Simulated assay, not measured.
Amino acid sequence: MNDAGGAVDEVARALNVADALGKADKLDDIALGLKELDMEHYDDEDEGVEVFSSRIGDLYYPSNDLDPYIKDKNDDDSEELEDMIINPTDSVVVCARTEDDFSLLEVHILEDVGTSEMNMYVHHDIIIPTFSLSTAWLDCLQGREKGNFLAVGSMEPSIEIWDLDVIDVVQPCMVLGGILEKKKKGKKKSIKYKDDSHTDSVLGLAWNKALRNVLASASADKRVKIWDVATGKCESTMEHQSDKVLAVAWHHHEREILLSGSFDHTVVLRDGRMPSHPGYKWSITADVESLAWDPHTYPYFVVSLEDGTIKCFDVRTAKSESTSDLSSTFTLHAHDKVVTSVSYNVSAPNLLATGSMDKMVKL
Rank of each mutant, 00 (worst) to 15 (best):
S219G: 04
L291R: 10
D139F: 11
T199D: 10
Y61R: 01
E36Q: 14
K319M: 00
W207G: 05
N148K: 10
L133D: 08
P299K: 00
A20K: 09
S134F: 07
Q142V: 08
P129E: 14
G6S: 13
S320F: 02
D25G: 08
I30L: 13
A4C: 06
A249Y: 11
R55G: 14
M360L: 11
V8F: 11
K71F: 12
P157R: 07
E145A: 12
V214I: 15
D44N: 11
G204Q: 06
D307G: 04
M360S: 15
E40G: 10
S158P: 05
K194D: 13
N87R: 14
D165I: 06
A230W: 01
V342E: 00
L66R: 09
D58S: 13
E82Y: 11
I86P: 05
S320E: 09
R255N: 10
L305G: 08
V339Q: 01
G279Q: 02
I85G: 10
F102P: 08
D264T: 07
N2M: 03
V170Q: 15
A220F: 00
P295S: 04
F330E: 00
H108C: 10
A12R: 05
S260Q: 07
K337R: 09
Y300M: 07
D287V: 10
D19S: 14
V113L: 02
V224S: 05
G186H: 06
L59S: 08
D76I: 10
H265S: 08
D307L: 05
N64Y: 13
L138N: 02
G153H: 06
S116Y: 02
Q142F: 03
E321A: 07
A7H: 07
M274Y: 15
I30W: 09
D90I: 03
V107E: 03
H198V: 11
M274K: 15
P299M: 01
S343I: 13
A20W: 06
A247I: 02
M274E: 11
V338W: 14
K35Y: 08
V288A: 04
V51P: 03
I128S: 09
L32F: 09
G308F: 01
C312F: 00
K188L: 06
E254Y: 12
S197R: 13
S78F: 08
H265G: 01
E36T: 13
S320R: 06
R144A: 11
T266K: 00
D358W: 03
M39C: 10
E117Y: 11
I86F: 02
D75T: 13
K281C: 05
E36D: 14
K73A: 06
A218L: 02
H108M: 09
T199W: 05
V94G: 02
I127H: 14
S103V: 04
G143T: 06
L104I: 14
K209E: 15
H41S: 14
H124S: 02
S290W: 02
S276E: 05
T89W: 12
D307T: 00
D336H: 07
S53K: 06
V245C: 04
G48H: 07
G177A: 02
P172A: 09
D294M: 04
P349K: 01
V175S: 04
S242T: 10
S283A: 12
K35G: 15
I284T: 11
D314H: 01
